[in-house]
Structure formats: C-alpha cells, structure tokens
Computed example of a mutant assay.
Amino acid sequence: MTNRTHGPLFAVVGPGAVGGLVAAFLQRAGHEVVLVGRPGTARRVSEHGLEIVTDRYGDWHAPLRATTTVPRGACVLVAVKAEGLAAVVGSVAAARPREVLSLLNGVEHMATLRGALAVDGDGGGPGVTAVAGASYAGETLRTGSGPDTAMTVRHRGDLLRITVPAAAADLDVVRALRDTDIEVATAGSEAEVLWSKLRFLAPLALLTSVHRTGIGEALDADPALTADVLGEVAAVATAEGVATTPDDLRAILGGFPPTMRSSLQADLAVGRLGELDAIGGAVARCGAQRGVPTPTIERTVDRLHRGVG
C-alpha cells in the first residue's frame, strides 16, 4: 500500500453499498478517505468499519473513518441514491469541495448539484474545480443489522466499472480511482455517459418491477409492454445523443443473468418509491422536452407509483 497521507482528502457521501465499496477500495489503495452519512450510520462505521466481501477481489476489513459533514475542501464522490440527494446537497455545497464526482443514477441530478454549487456546465464556480457525472456498474449490496456490528458490503461477479466523461479524466478523484482495482473507463460527454446507463437501467427497473421477477422472465412476460418500453427508451436516448435501437436494448438486457433484479424492485416491494421518478420519470420528462412521446413509460411509472400508494 502506498503512503498518500499528503494527498487530497476524498469524502464519499453515502455509506451504502456503492459508496462503502468505493471508499474501501480507495483506502486500500492508500488514499485518505472519509465516509459521510447520517449520525447512526457514521458512528457505526467509525466504530466497526466495513467488512468487504467480493468474488473477484478478495475479502477484507476496511477500518474507515466516518462523519456527518463533508470536510471543507475535500474531493467529493456523491454515492447516495437519487431520492437522497436533496438531503445531502446542502452539506456538499457548504464544504466548498475541490471536486465533485457523482455516481447517481439518472440524469437530472446534475442540474441539482451544479445549481447548489453555483457551477456552470463547464465546471467552473466559486471554490469548485470541477463537477462531473459518472456511472457505476456492478452488482453490489450492503447487509448487516444492529448498531453494534460491522456492516458488510458484498460485491458479486466480475463487473466493477466506473465510467467518467472525457472532460473529467484528469480529476484527482478519477486518478485516485485508477489506483484501485475498480476499472475506470472514459467515454465521451457527460450526457453520453449517463444516458448510456439510463437507457438500459430504465427498462431493467421498470420491467422487473412490474412483473416482480428477474429480467429474463420480465422481458418475455408481456411482449407488447416490453416492445413499447424498449422502443420509447431507445427513442429518447437517441434524441439525447446516444443512438440506440430497441434491439440494442434487448441485447444488453439479454446479456444479464436472467435472475437479475433491480434495486427499484426491492424498494417498491417494501413500500418505498426509491428511484422510480429519477429513472422512469426522468425518461418521460426528457422525452417531453425532446418531443418524443412516452405513453407506455408514463403509464408504467403511474402504475408502480399507485402500487406503493
């Protein structure tokens, strides 16, 4: 492990599965890192650390430090779910961070971040070097209950990738991620990075949630619904600059393990709306802005929303 105590401080906001795993990898690579979360979670992490369990990268105990506020001037990775952004964006802005890299799903959160940080689309702003939206790929979950035990972050399979826009390739936080075992890919503009994920995440989340099953069964459960959802998502993604066909999406989804389910499905099952609006709602709103009709997506989002209500 390289001693990097004189390097920048990296603050990972959101000590969930993704945030916890990324923080643990950064720490294992020798970087100074702190997790930022709610009081109970921060105390638990500070006292017990995290247990990291992976299929590919080994298992280890990560004695991470945690706090409830973002340290001033830190390089920040935002890893909360989209519905949790409003609760943390003020703390992020108050810290006047050097850099902010978002790992949230969806596309609309970047306007929220830039608005709170008074940052324009090119990344400039008072006290901020850069703000960029990235995408995370990997099957990761956090388990463990009880305030007196360590939480476990479980990463399954081989896929573990963070994709950043080309303009963010030289950020300190991206350089630090390259020191870890996480694959870091660079691909085009921020919109291209975010839409390249949202275009398959939206049908994955909506179809598995509607049918309450894995993506393999969900794709075939209602052929007409599947065709309409894939067609509408592909049309919106294409209008947003990521050329996509329904066949492209079916091929991507068909390449996943048939039993794969979405985190949205898990949230809805326990009565939480989760990222329904940030995923399905965002596609519909972007379609409206681009003049692309999305009636099936709108009906599906409403159906799932009413199922929780």
Rank of each mutant, 00 (worst) to 15 (best):
A11D: 00
P71G: 08
S46H: 05
V301H: 12
S262M: 04
V12S: 15
M110H: 11
A278V: 08
R199G: 07
G49F: 07
E47F: 06
G106Y: 12
A62Y: 09
L113H: 05
M151N: 01
T149P: 07
D267I: 06
V70P: 02
D222V: 04
A168C: 12
R38T: 09
A79V: 04
A266T: 15
T208R: 08
G124R: 13
E47Y: 01
T259H: 06
D158N: 04
V153H: 00
L207Y: 15
G84T: 02
V283E: 10
I162Y: 05
T67K: 11
V76P: 02
T143W: 00
L35K: 06
G309P: 08
L35M: 12
T259Q: 08
T244L: 04
G255E: 07
T163Y: 06
G121A: 14
E139S: 05
T186R: 14
A11G: 04
T5M: 15
F25R: 11
S209V: 01
G14D: 01
T143R: 11
T69Q: 07
V12Y: 01
E240D: 13
G125C: 08
G115P: 07
I252G: 14
S145T: 12
V242A: 05
R306D: 15
V119I: 12
T68W: 12
S263Q: 15
I162V: 13
A218H: 14
R250H: 15
A95L: 02
L249H: 06
P165D: 03
G291K: 04
A234G: 10
S135P: 09
V45N: 05
G281V: 07
A251K: 15
P39L: 00
D302Q: 14
G280L: 02
I279L: 10
V236E: 05
G281P: 10
L117D: 02
T140A: 06
V78M: 11
T238Y: 15
G16I: 01
L160M: 10
V283G: 08
L50F: 13
G281A: 09
E32I: 03
G144W: 01
V34Q: 10
L9K: 14
G40L: 06
V34T: 09
R161S: 08
G49W: 01
A221W: 06
